[in-house]
Design a binder for these strands. Structure first.
Length: 430
RNA sequence: GGAGAGGUGGCGGAGUGGUCGAUCGCGCCGGUCUCGAAAACCGGAGUGCCUGCAAGGGUACCGUGGGUUCGAAUCCCACCCUCUCCGCCA
């Protein structure tokens, strides 16, 4: 959510930033509403002050036994009561209106973010690794012989429908190994703190990390009102909701491995084969809570944490900066990591690392106490480190051999019972 | 699920209709004392919003939402959460 003071003080800067996102100016509408709101608050509070004063006088009159004055003041207050209630309701309504309006406006891009309308304007900032030369036609993950029977979409469709998978044998062993490997690396080498969280949350949490109110159709809600998290960014970030953290406790760098649930409402027909885009998937997420001044440095640090996973797995990737038109709702700046998928012959997103500045913290009222001065909103960052299913795909496609087997990244062998490859008929081999 | 107890400021814990935003203790910050520290003593300190150049003033907040009352932390209703015991259960 945006700081109304920032909009009041620099409406042009606000509108300019919106236009970089392809949005029309909103400051005049916001400021008109804000002015109206403040006028009503002033009126309502003044009326309330009058009532409070009269109530005190009532008490004083009674105490000294002045019955006439007592009755007179009592009647006066009773008379004003409905009017005051109405004024307060009006003020509260305008307050809510302004909040709702602000809640629906995306974050503003940082100056350094490249302008652009869509993904074509994203800027590659570095590339790591070289796609392996294959002297055969590389297959997509679901066609690799080593995965035959281990990646079962038909059974999943019977159980749940499209965009689900049943994993068996080497596929799920490798999937589990990847998640463990990511967590262990983040904990022991990157200094992140592992956290386990619920995957069912209250609506407030979804508002806090801006899934609500605009993107309700992208997530699932239970019959009693809980939401299934689309990412553990929701739970990890909302840990700070309503809190005032000590500055000395920052930064707080967390990681969690959870199930994620997405309706994929807007992606009908996109990535329908294989397990690239599922309703239910696993992700190792990273979230950092820090001071606003350190957010950009933390952003680079988090990006490096995600890149380290790909490097250790030996997977070629490129890092891009999303342009203003391609960034998510809550982001000020986003790095995407795209891993090379030989089966598709292209780079595909495997991680997205964003700094949200104080945008989410303002929504969830997450603050810290600076060494001097008043509490201020923290900065929040989130990033995948990594999407486990997509990483499984990348390992399989990049490690595939002409004979249908898959050579595994050496760093995984200790997580795979010493296996170094998956044979063409789906067994682990050393 | 049943029965009971309880949710007050960083923590503990008073307060059961009126100068209570709230006694007190611990912790915290500043000062005195000291070579320095501890102890002791003195002083300070919640959060949001509105208003004001500022000093300040106003308003709201005692789990949440309603209600009663001129007036609610205090009374009533509903809900949420925590704890204890019982039942059930991975």
């Amino acid at each position: 959510m945006h700081d109304i003071r920032f909009i009041r003080e620099t409406p042009e800067a606000f509108d300019r930033a919106l236009s970089r996102r392809g949005l029309s100016p909103l400051s005049s509408q916001i400021l008109a509403l804000d002015a109206d709101r403040r006028a009503r608050i002033l009126a309502a509070e003044t009326a309330q002050a009058d009532q409070n004063k009269a109530s005190k006088d009532v008490g004083a009159a009674k105490a000294r036994g002045d019955d006439a004055e007592f009755e007179r003041l009592r009647a006066l207050v009773a008379e004003k009561k409905a009017e005051i209630a109405r004024m307060q309701a009006e003020a509260a309504a305008l307050d809510d209106q302004l909040r709702d309006l602000l809640m629906g406006i995306p974050n503003l891009p940082l100056d350094e973010v490249p302008d652009g309308a869509d993904e074509n304007a994203n800027v590659e900032i570095r590339r790591w690794g070289t796609p392996r030369q294959m002297d055969f036609a590389p297959r997509e993950h679901f066609d690799i012989p080593a995965m035959a029977g281990a990646m079962d979409f038909a059974t999943a469709a019977k159980l749940s429908g499209s965009r689900f998978v049943v994993l068996k044998g080497a596929a799920i062993r490798l999937h589990r190994a990847l998640a463990q490997f990511m967590l262990d690396t983040h904990i022991s080498e990157h200094g992140l703190q592992e956290v386990w969280t619920p995957v069912l949350v209250k609506p407030e949490a979804m508002y806090g990390t801006n899934q609500l109110p605009k993107f309700a159709e992208d997530s699932y809600q239970t019959t009693n009102g809980w939401w299934l998290i689309p990412t553990s960014e929701v739970t990890l970030t909302n840990i700070a909701a309503g809190e005032i953290l000590e500055e000395t406790a920052l930064p707080i760098r967390m990681t969690a491995h959870t199930q994620c649930f997405r309706s994929e409402a807007g992606s009908a027909g996109k990535d329908t084969t294989g397990m690239l885009r599922q309703h239910q998937f696993e992700k190792v997420e990273m979230v950092t809570l820090c001071t606003p001044e350190t957010a950009l440095a933390e952003h680079d640090r988090m990006t490096a944490c995600a890149e380290a996973i790909l490097q250790k797995l030996g997977l070629p990737y490129r890092t891009i900066v999303l342009c203003t038109g391609d960034m998510g709702f809550g982001a000020q700046k986003t790095h995407d990591l795209e891993v090379w998928l030989p089966g598709q012959k292209r780079y595909r997103e495997i991680s997205s690392v964003s700094t949200c500045g104080q945008f989410q913290a303002r929504r969830m009222n997450g603050r810290y106490r600076p060494a001097t001065g008043k509490p201020d909103f923290i900065a929040t960052l989130n990033g995948s480190g990594l999407a486990v299913g997509r990483c499984l795909i990348a390992v399989l496609e990049n490690g595939q051999q002409a004979d249908g087997s898959v050579v595994l990244p050496p760093v995984l062998s200790s997580y795979m019972g010493g296996a170094t490859h998956i044979t063409a008929d789906g067994r682990l081999g050393a």
